[in-house]
Amino acid sequence: MKKDYSEDLREIRDIMQRSSRFISLSGLSGVSTGIIALIGAFLAYQIVFKDTEFLVYNQVHLPYERMVNLLLIASGTLILSIGNAIFFTRIKTQPYQHHGWDVASKRLFINLLIPLVSGGILCLLFLWKGFVGVLPSLTLIFYGLALVNGSKYTFSEIRSLGIIQIILGLLAFAFLRYGLLFWAFGFGLVQILYGLMIQRKYKL
């Protein structure tokens, strides 16, 4: 009898861990990161890419100053986006007492991070070697892969968002000259639309 009950408890714990998804992701963070991405893309175009021939398939020589600007814009966009996501998630979890950093959120975070970090490092290597043209495409593809990978641990909509980003990334490679446009479309508009959709569907 006693053994039976401990078996029950073990099973409960096991099921709770297996099933928990991180559902505190805020749709608003999707909207705000989308807006940040649009601003980032605009700045990158104005400051780095305008009137240049960098978006091509071969190696280009990126002047040091432009390289630094591009890195500044990219890291600024990234940091602001992550900060935003954390901020909106905090707002959403606060009234419910359960703090955001539990098994589910950790699992989501790690699974997002694996493709994201490997893609990020690859992009830096490409940038370093002067292959600037592939960057919009690669960032879209790896971001999409990260979303697909993480979607098992949060809203299922994230999966289709990821697939859209991957397709846009492939298109961005096929039409390299318009890479930045695809990038703004994927990270900006699509992300904003998905954010609004999730916000509407899951608002508490």
Binding site: E11, I12, I15, M16, S19, S20, R21, I23, A104
Partner: peptide
């Protein structure tokens, strides 16, 4: 099991 799931999801 059903209830365990619904406690977290």
């Amino acid at each position: 099991g059903i209830m365990s799931v619904l406690m977290v999801d």
